[in-house]
Amino acid sequence: MLAAALALAAGAAWAQVDVGAASSLRTLVPAETLEQSAQQQYAQLLEQARAQRALAPEGNPQLRKLRAIAQRLIPYAAQWNPRARQWRWEINLIGSKEVNAFCMPGGKIVFYTGILNQLQLTDDEIAMVMGHEMAHALREHARERLVKTQATNIGLRLGAQLLGLGDVGTLAANLGGQLLTLKFSRSDESESDLVGLELAARAGFNPQASVTLWQKMSQASGGEGFGFLSTHPTGPDRIHELQANLPKVQKLYEQARR
């Protein structure tokens, strides 16, 4: 199924939504180093969940649904980041009341049952969450955030190239634990909203679900355990922006549904 979808994506005419060029700052952190660090952190997270008997088994219906949705989204990822062709994508589900989901560099995805159950997400809404998180990884927002964080901590500036990649790369190798708590900028969020919306629309998921998703998020934002909202703030402006973006991807959705 994935091979067929990849072939379809490769043969499709590609006209991406415009989100501008990715920040050159991210190049100060080697992608390979950060992806390896993410893999280590991901493995530790899964091991902890397994020890707590919270890691969903292979036959879990919700996990199977998540993986089926991912199979539809992944074929369109490499158009946003060629490295995604080599990523070993993984999708897992952890039993927890926490309302959260994320995609780490290298394509490591986790959903918590809290976000599925408490918000009663439809398949289309799940695709919007997943597409958004994949977009953060594809646009390498974590690489950029980590550079900016370390620039503050150790006095790096745009001339940090003079220090050599090894200095920043060494820092990146030890930053896996920060990947789960990074707070992206508002521009990162807007970019991921639009890129994720396009990924989902191309995969045949209704773009309107992005609006209903964030309406649910907004209504539930006062609840406890909303880890997703700690790093993905919501509000009327975000919903209005999503509504304004719907026409940009509507034709892609219609083409996917033919």
Rank of each mutant, 00 (worst) to 15 (best):
A3T: 14
A3N: 12
A4I: 09
A5I: 01
L8T: 13
A9Q: 12
A9E: 13
A10F: 08
G11Y: 04
A13K: 12
Q16G: 14
D18Y: 09
G20V: 11
G20L: 12
A22M: 14
A22V: 14
S23M: 01
S23G: 05
R26T: 09
T27K: 13
T33P: 06
T33S: 12
T33Q: 04
L34E: 13
E35Q: 13
E35G: 01
E35H: 05
S37V: 06
Q39C: 07
Q41F: 03
Y42A: 03
Q44V: 06
L45Q: 14
L45Y: 01
R50Y: 03
R50H: 06
A51L: 11
R53M: 04
N60I: 04
Q62A: 14
R64S: 10
R64Q: 15
A68G: 08
Q71S: 13
I74W: 05
A78V: 06
W80M: 02
Q86E: 15
W89G: 00
E90T: 11
L93K: 02
A101G: 05
C103P: 06
P105F: 02
G106F: 05
G107H: 07
V110D: 05
F111Y: 13
Y112L: 12
T113L: 10
G114M: 05
G114W: 06
I115A: 05
L116F: 04
Q118H: 09
Q118F: 07
L119V: 08
Q120H: 14
L121S: 10
D124T: 04
D124C: 02
D124Y: 05
D124L: 03
E125G: 03
A127L: 01
M128Y: 00
V129T: 04
E133I: 03
H136R: 07
A137C: 10
R143N: 15
R145L: 08
L146C: 04
L146H: 08
L146V: 00
V147C: 01
K148R: 15
A151E: 09
T152P: 01
T152D: 10
N153L: 15
I154D: 09
I154N: 12
I154G: 06
L156A: 14
L156G: 02
R157S: 13
L158E: 10
L158N: 10
L158G: 03
G159N: 14
A160M: 10
L162N: 07
L165R: 10
D167K: 12
L171R: 08
L171Q: 11
L171Y: 10
A172W: 03
N174G: 12
G177M: 01
Q178T: 00
L179G: 01
L180P: 07
K183P: 05
F184R: 09
R186W: 02
E191I: 06
S192Q: 04
D193H: 08
L194I: 07
E198K: 01
A201H: 09
R202E: 08
R202S: 08
A203V: 08
P207Q: 12
P207E: 11
Q208M: 10
V211W: 08
V211C: 08
L213V: 09
W214A: 01
Q215E: 15
A220G: 07
G223D: 01
E224W: 05
F226S: 03
L229G: 06
L229V: 02
H232A: 05
T234Q: 00
G235Q: 06
R238N: 04
I239N: 01
E241T: 13
N245T: 03
L246K: 02
L246W: 03
P247C: 03
K251L: 04
L252E: 11
E254S: 07
E254D: 12
Q255H: 07
Q255R: 12
R258P: 00
